[in-house]
Design a protein around this nucleic acid. Structure first.
Lengths: 252, 252
DNA sequence: GTATGGATTAAAACGCATTTTAAGGCGTGC
DNA sequence: GCACGCCTTAAAATGCGTTTTAATCCATAC
């Protein structure tokens, strides 16, 4: 490797490090290429020479963390069904450690991160889920007559959509986690075997109760404090009434 | 209504019409506020006075079509389970009529359409699905012990995620439709009653076969023509091998 | 007929991502 | 020791969404 190459990769690292620090400190709005260049001690043209675009830099920031996550997943041991839910919980824990950083990076990268981003995030995840599902199937815990590709894609996409909703500020981290686990459990119920059905149904019920708690709290708060347009109010009130009825039924 | 108000709403209509025409003609990239203003015969400041932002204008473009879709849905009659799938098919048909327009608008609006967009699209859809699911439940075709909110949100989000994937160019319209129907059928299997199980399982199988056909064609094509990075190749090859094995098994 | 007030306008400006230009720095090979 | 390549740099420029300014239009109210 010629010597300027090492200087170049050093600069690359500096820029990615500066990007991570800046993202953590200033969030998605305080992050501009001009500030980043200044922060990294290079000219504005350099990041473009080395990475090509802003999104490429943010992808690089994400990539390191994704790798750490992958290795953590690889070391995990649990029952073939539990491992699926543990995967979701681990992701939630990773996000919980530095929520601002992850939210900013994921939101920024998804804004127009294009297909590469989608693929970088979904690809490995999809392979992972496919493996996990195959193992559960071999253990006799899931029906064998289901296409693992179709199922893994569905589950992966559901996760991804919820993560995005969280990153864009539409969901708390806890509700994101609850929704993902609910959707996962729901899909798994569809392909459960007699041996696993009770376990998965119980997971589904737990996630359902968790979500209901969130909604009850959130909706009551929103109905209290704001003037809302009528359509919004209708949706919220509908949810609220439903949930309150259900609470009454349950306590009766 | 004072006379300048009518002139104002006339201008609003002109701008929305120009936005729709421009979007249809030039797509998401050729659409800039300066071009739009020129096209509509107003100054650049006027759209901002009347709508506030670019995304608000695009939301307006979408809103009209959404309303037409809603009314078409309201007139639909079918078996309580079939109606769920018909809803997806109707959406697909709407998109198929003017794919460029819808792709552009949805992609543009989702780029940073913010929460209002999410809500405008998801809100009515969520209410619709909740109603449809309630009717199916009352007809004894779905289990009654499932939270309709949680279920409707899950289904709605799954639809939305796939529509977005289509709008961003990651999916053909037909595959989008197939994926949505697969995910819908999968979720419904989980809450099917004995009366509806066979019908839904058959839907699931159909969607599965459709998706497999897409993948077989698409993956073979991609493996042929491009240099791919190793990770991508691994994902694709894995899918391809799986599907080809399955084809062999089936033909055997 | 004239003043009032809301709306549109042209024009300039801001900050942004990105690209292009010419100039300079510096390790490597001769 | 000198020239060649590669890379960084400063600086300016492009086009974007958006905002601000002051000027101007024009239907209504007196």
């Amino acid at each position: 490797m010629p010597s300027w190459e090492t200087a170049k990769s050093q600069r690359r690292d500096d820029i990615v490090a500066a990007a991570r620090a800046l993202m953590r400190r200033s969030g998605v709005d305080g992050f501009s290429m001009r500030v980043l260049a200044e922060e990294a001690g290079v000219s504005i043209a350099t990041p473009y020479n080395l990475f090509g675009s802003k999104q490429a830099i943010l992808l690089e920031v994400l990539a390191a963390d994704l790798k750490a996550y992958e290795t953590a997943l690889a070391e995990m041991h649990a029952d073939e069904i539990e491992v699926l839910f543990r995967t979701v919980e681990m992701m939630t824990e990773v996000f919980a450690e530095e929520p601002d950083l992850y939210r900013s990076v994921i939101a920024a990268v998804s804004r127009d991160g294009g297909p590469e981003f989608r693929f970088m995030v979904s690809g490995p995840r999809y392979l992972l889920w496919k493996r996990l599902l195959r193992e559960a199937t071999e253990a006799g815990l899931l029906r064998a007559d289901v296409d693992p590709d179709a199922f893994a894609i569905t589950v992966t996409q559901h996760m991804f959509a919820n993560v995005l909703d969280w990153a864009l500020g539409n969901l708390s981290l806890a509700e994101m986690s609850g929704r993902i686990r609910y959707g996962l459990a729901l899909s798994l119920v569809a392909i459960a075997t007699p041996r696993s059905r009770a376990q998965i149904e119980s997971r589904l019920k737990n996630a359902e109760i968790l979500l209901q708690q969130f909604w009850r709290a959130a909706l009551a708060a929103r109905l209290k404090d704001g003037p809302l347009d009528t359509e919004t109010r209708a949706v919220l009130a509908d949810q609220l009434i439903h949930i309150e009825n259900r609470s009454l039924e349950e306590s009766a």
